[in-house]
Design a protein around this nucleic acid. Structure first.
Length: 585
RNA sequence: GGCCCCGUAGCUCAAUUGGUUAGAGUGCCAGAUUGUCGAUCUGGAUGUUGCGGGUUCGAGUCCCGUCGGGGUCGCCA
């Protein structure tokens, strides 16, 4: 009997351990049976080690021949330094092997549905159904480990900064607006429901009123909305709130944390402070409130030049109050005609009626519409766009919203096609000065862009009711490689301002009183100015690892339909359970 | 709710214009094999082509529906 008491892991042993008697436990990764000598690689979380079964020990050798992939075994043996020519440079333990003296088969294993160390990608469906096998893959273990280290790094950082981790309820009152809540029926109050928290927003504000001053929590949030590659119905946030702060302090705090995360986990130095863009700026330069700054291709407006040209489309749009805007794709001159047609079709669904392209040559432009631009105008266009020979200019003419959204999509597509995105690059920025509200055309009313507790800028309080569309919020989003990884704001701490914002959002005094009285109360009893931010842990981990989906960094994720293929959730329940809950279908 | 892609052996894929008995690699099983490490060699088994209907002399292939997986728009304060 070897037993299960390990002396080392499968990643530990090195030539300096030569001669030691050791016990390893793990899974059989592969067996290579040479008839005489038989090799079995044993794998655990820490690595893999080659175990050698020699034919001299006949009983042991025969049992070794019954080993199959994924059997769980323990082995007692002696570490042997491998002679020259027999080392395996691909393995950290490749300098040694363990000569088996005893071996226990702790558990046999059925043939796994897919190879744990296979190279071919396995269908998502299969991986999720057999997630216990999938998570054995070294890549998944590395992902989960990095996630753990990141969270560890964050906790240490916030502890050093004096933050206190406070748990807030997940079963809360369902609140109107924002994400759809998952509902939990109350057995003790038939007909009433809890909502699963979409975020700890109000609780962390209440904690500020309570004087906790600096709060942090790594917390699950629940949103009953459609899934995406970077969206799961339950996900994890790093949630932060601070009292007596301005936006700058929150921003600096988070920059410090992210810089440390990048340094500790990836060894990368991220320059701080990050670039800060106003919302308006981000929209005009990138057509997007979460611009990917790993590459350039900023937009430039040429409405005035379009007006001077003979090109009817540009002139008509310019004179009709629209705008002409575009960007310069470096090296884009190589895009063939066919590719340009593809790109024109690509922007169609985003509302652009057409796409004007101009190939930049030495001081001139080559384009079907070049003839409408006299040489002097071409030169000014090239200068305005910062273009050089070999580049390609793209323009869209329409009303501003259409121009910006079409160019935004086009810019990203061109970056992909021209391979302008540097691998392993991390571009961080802040987007500030968001509009407080956005007009909901279907409901014909103003909605909170962030949430109803976001503070307007002090200088905009006067126009809150008169020009609500122009009011800016004291909100901040942090963006990494074109993905929003976090957002927050300075909150309203004045009950009167809070009431005005509720009114603006069409939340009546009665409704505000019935649903948010606790908040309005709290604000009355001495609420300090406060603000905070929340970061998406899953998304951040995904980006750090360069993964395509947050499923790669969540141990047990759900499918696009919100199902857990391993456990079969969601599932029907016993009618008696429903009856107890007072729920009828 | 809309649009798009995918579904063939355990896994990853192929199968010409709709045409003979649906193939390959890998895995699996058996045998051989004393230094491999993606071991090698020989042999073997494995299919409700997701499911249901339709068109056709004939459907993996075309059409309709449906289920499942993925991407995306809406949605996600």
């Amino acid at each position: 009997m070897v037993g299960i008491t390990r002396t080392h892991t499968c990643g530990d042993l090195r030539p300096t351990d030569g001669g030691k008697e050791v016990v390893l436990c793990g899974w059989v990764a592969t067996v290579r049976d040479h008839g005489g000598v038989l090799f079995a690689d044993v794998r655990d979380r820490y690595g893999r080690t080659q175990v050698v079964f020699n034919p001299e020990n006949r009983e042991l050798h025969e049992r070794a021949q019954t080993l199959r992939s994924e059997f769980v075994i323990s082995v007692r043996g002696v570490v042997a330094v491998r002679p020259d020519g027999m080392q395996n440079a691909k393995l950290p333990t490749g300098g040694i092997e363990v000569i088996a003296r005893e071996m226990d088969i702790l558990n046999a294993a059925a043939t796994p549905p897919f190879e744990v160390e296979g190279t071919a990608p396995v269908a998502q469906e299969t991986r999720l159904k057999y997630r216990f096998i999938d998570l054995r893959r070294p890549e998944m273990q590395r992902n989960l480990f990095l996630r753990h280290k990141m969270i560890q790094c964050m906790r240490t950082y916030f502890d050093e900064q004096g933050f206190i981790d406070v748990e807030t309820p997940l079963m809360i009152r369902s609140t109107p607006g924002g994400a759809r809540n998952f509902l939990v029926p109350s057995r003790l109050t038939p007909g009433a429901f809890y909502g699963l928290a979409e975020s700890p927003q109000l609780f962390k504000q209440i904690l500020m009123v309570s004087g906790l001053d600096r709060y942090v929590q790594i917390v699950k949030c629940f949103r009953d909305e459609d899934l995406r590659a970077d969206r799961q119905p339950e996900f994890t946030q790093l949630d932060v709130e601070m009292s007596f702060v301005e936006q700058g302090q929150i921003i600096t705090l988070i920059e410090g944390m992210l810089a440390r995360v990048f340094k500790q986990l990836l060894g990368k130095d991220i320059p701080t402070p990050f670039l800060r863009l106003s919302y308006d700026d981000a929209m005009l330069r990138y057509g997007c409130d979460k611009p990917d700054l790993r590459y350039g291709m900023e937009f430039r407006e040429i409405t005035d030049l379009g007006k001077e040209s003979e090109f009817k489309v540009f002139r008509a749009v310019a004179e009709g109050g629209g705008e002409v805007r575009g960007f310069c794709a470096p090296g884009g001159g190589q895009i063939p005609r066919r590719g340009l047609d593809d790109l024109t079709a690509y922007v169609g669904p985003f509302g652009a009626k057409g796409l004007v392209w101009m190939r930049v040559e030495e001081g001139t432009l080559n384009s079907p519409v070049a003839k409408f631009f006299p040489p002097a105008l071409q030169a000014r266009l090239i200068e305005r766009m910062g273009a050089r020979a070999g580049d390609m200019l793209f323009f869209v003419a329409d009303k501003p919203s259409v121009v910006l959204s079409a160019l935004n999509e086009l810019r990203q597509e061109v970056a992909r096609r021209l391979k302008l995105i540097p691998p392993d690059a991390f571009a961080l920025c802040w987007v500030l000065d968001f509009p407080l509200l956005e007009w909901n055309e279907t409901e014909k009313r103003w909605d909170a862009r962030h949430h109803p507790f976001t503070s307007p800028r002090a200088e905009d309080l006067d126009i809150l009711e008169t020009k609500p569309g122009e009011v800016k919020a004291r909100a901040h989003d942090v963006v990494l490689n074109g993905v929003e990884i976090g957002g927050g704001s300075i909150r309203i701490h004045n009950p009167e301002v809070q009431k005005r914002v509720f009114r603006l959002l069409n939340i009546s005094d009665e409704e505000a009183q019935s649903k948010f009285s606790f908040l309005l109360d709290a604000l009355k009893y001495g609420a300090p100015p406060h603000g905070g931010i929340a970061l998406g842990i899953d998304r951040l981990t995904m980006l750090l690892l360069g993964a395509e989906s947050i499923r790669e960094v969540i141990a047990f994720p759900k499918t696009q339909k919100g199902a857990c293929l391993m456990t079969g959730a969601p599932a029907e329940v016993d009618p008696r359970q429903l009856k107890e809950l007072g729920v009828r279908m």
